[in-house]
Amino acid sequence: MIHEKIFNLAVDREAKVILKGGIPNISGQITIDFEFLIKEKNDRYFRSPIGENHPQYWKLKRLSPERSQLLQLEYSGLSKKQLNAAIKEFKQLAGLGYVFNDSIRIEERMKGLKGIRSNVTGRSRVLAA
Rank of each mutant, 00 (worst) to 15 (best):
H3P: 04
H3E: 14
H3Q: 13
E4W: 00
E4T: 15
E4G: 01
K5Y: 01
I6F: 03
I6T: 09
I6M: 07
I6Y: 10
I6L: 05
F7E: 13
F7R: 12
N8K: 15
A10K: 07
A10V: 15
A10G: 12
A10Y: 09
A10T: 14
V11C: 13
V11Q: 13
D12H: 15
E14W: 00
E14F: 03
E14H: 09
E14A: 08
A15M: 04
A15Y: 02
K16H: 02
K16V: 11
V17N: 11
V17L: 06
I18W: 00
I18C: 01
I18N: 08
L19C: 00
K20F: 00
G21L: 05
G21K: 05
G22V: 06
G22P: 00
I23P: 04
I23G: 07
I23E: 14
I23Y: 09
N25W: 12
N25F: 11
N25Q: 04
N25C: 09
I26D: 14
I26C: 07
I26W: 10
S27C: 08
Q29M: 13
Q29C: 06
Q29T: 13
I30T: 05
I30F: 09
I30E: 05
I30K: 08
T31G: 06
I32L: 13
I32M: 10
D33F: 02
E35F: 08
F36V: 06
F36C: 12
F36E: 01
L37W: 05
I38V: 15
I38P: 06
I38D: 02
I38Y: 10
K39Y: 01
E40L: 09
K41E: 03
N42G: 07
N42T: 11
D43I: 01
D43G: 09
R44Q: 15
R44G: 15
Y45T: 11
Y45D: 15
Y45E: 15
Y45K: 15
F46K: 05
F46V: 04
R47G: 10
R47Q: 13
S48P: 07
S48L: 10
P49N: 13
I50H: 00
G51H: 04
G51K: 15
G51D: 11
H54N: 15
P55T: 00
P55G: 00
P55D: 00
Q56M: 08
Y57F: 13
W58I: 03
W58Q: 09
K59C: 14
K59N: 14
L60P: 04
L60N: 11
L60R: 11
L60F: 11
K61Q: 15
K61F: 04
S64K: 13
S64W: 05
P65F: 09
E66A: 14
E66W: 09
R67E: 12
R67Q: 12
S68P: 09
S68I: 00
Q69A: 15
L70A: 02
L70S: 03
L71Y: 06
L71H: 00
Q72R: 13
Q72A: 02
L73N: 04
L73G: 02
L73P: 05
E74D: 04
E74H: 06
E74Y: 08
E74C: 00
E74R: 03
Y75T: 07
Y75S: 12
G77D: 01
G77W: 07
L78C: 08
S79M: 01
S79G: 12
S79Q: 02
S79C: 08
K80W: 07
K80M: 09
K81L: 09
